[in-house]
């Protein structure tokens, strides 16, 4: 299992400043919530997928297609039950509630896909620098990017410990879900201990390299906002404003739905 989602491609999306990508991510979280009508949500989904195509990151969707599909099904069913509308469809389900359920499922799917594309096009180091450039304190940004970088290491430690236990006869594969979870639990303590044991050495290594010695920092990885970034931000800002104006003008709603 590879926990890293970053795809090393040379596309204009990858070359955008991390702040621009964060702005796009927040915008893509907001955009689906402007509309209620599933047709409009489908248009937003098409836009996000087109963006993923430009970023050559659609391949990562294969990793989460099952989650996306289940979100679509579960959310649509759930809202069809708890919501209500005017037009009876079958049993106690009304047409508007079903449409709203589908629309809400699309909202969640869009935000999950947008998050996936962000991570597919942004390196951990860029996430850290982007946060700092946005005014987040360096130490916090450092903790976030270090944690992101350490996840594969901790997973690898867990796998190594699992293999060591298996070689001593621990059977992690057989049994039902509960039994399998129970068998994995004894691995938690060694994973924790192995990882946390390095804290003091890690801290000394950081301080010996001047961590926190000066308030102003310089970075090996240089990022800068370019004309392309400004164009993308303005373009997406205009799109978002246009969608809000469209909604205020009465388009993209869902008549007859009530919760």
């Amino acid at each position: 299992m590879d926990p890293s989602l970053y795809l090393d491609r040379d596309t204009w999306v990858h070359r955008l400043d991390p702040r621009t990508k964060m702005f796009l991510l927040v915008g893509m979280f907001a955009l689906p919530f402007v509309f209620l009508n599933p047709l409009y949500e489908l248009a937003v989904l098409a836009l996000v997928l087109f963006f993923g195509y430009l970023a050559q990151s659609l391949t990562n969707l294969r990793r989460i297609w099952f989650i996306l599909l289940t979100i679509l099904i579960v959310t649509t069913i759930l809202w069809s039950i708890v919501g209500s509308g005017r037009t009876p469809l079958f049993l106690f389900v009304e047409r508007e509630a079903l449409l709203y359920g589908f629309s809400n499922a699309l909202r969640i799917v869009i935000t999950v896909i947008a998050g996936m594309f962000f991570l597919s096009t942004t390196r951990n180091e860029e996430v850290g620098i982007g946060l700092v450039r946005l005014g987040i304190p360096y130490r916090f940004a450092f903790a976030v990017s270090t944690a992101l970088r350490l996840v594969p290491t901790v997973v690898a430690t867990g796998l190594t410990i699992g293999q060591a236990q298996r070689s001593r006869g621990l059977d992690l594969e057989s049994g039902n879900i509960i039994q399998r979870i129970r068998k994995h639990l004894p691995l938690l303590v060694p994973v924790f201990v192995t990882t946390v044991r390095s804290t003091n050495v890690f801290s000394m290594a950081l301080e010996s390299k001047g961590f926190g010695a000066r308030p102003e920092r310089t970075y090996f990885l240089r990022t800068a906002m370019s004309g392309r970034d400004a164009l993308v931000i303005m373009g997406f800002g205009a799109l978002l404003a246009g969608c809000i104006a469209l909604r205020l003008a009465g388009y993209g709603g869902l008549e007859g739905f009530s919760s």
Partner: peptide, 13 residues
Amino acid sequence: VVLVALSAAIYAA
């Protein structure tokens, strides 16, 4: 700071 990073990594992993 290191403990924040390590706890976050363990929890996520």
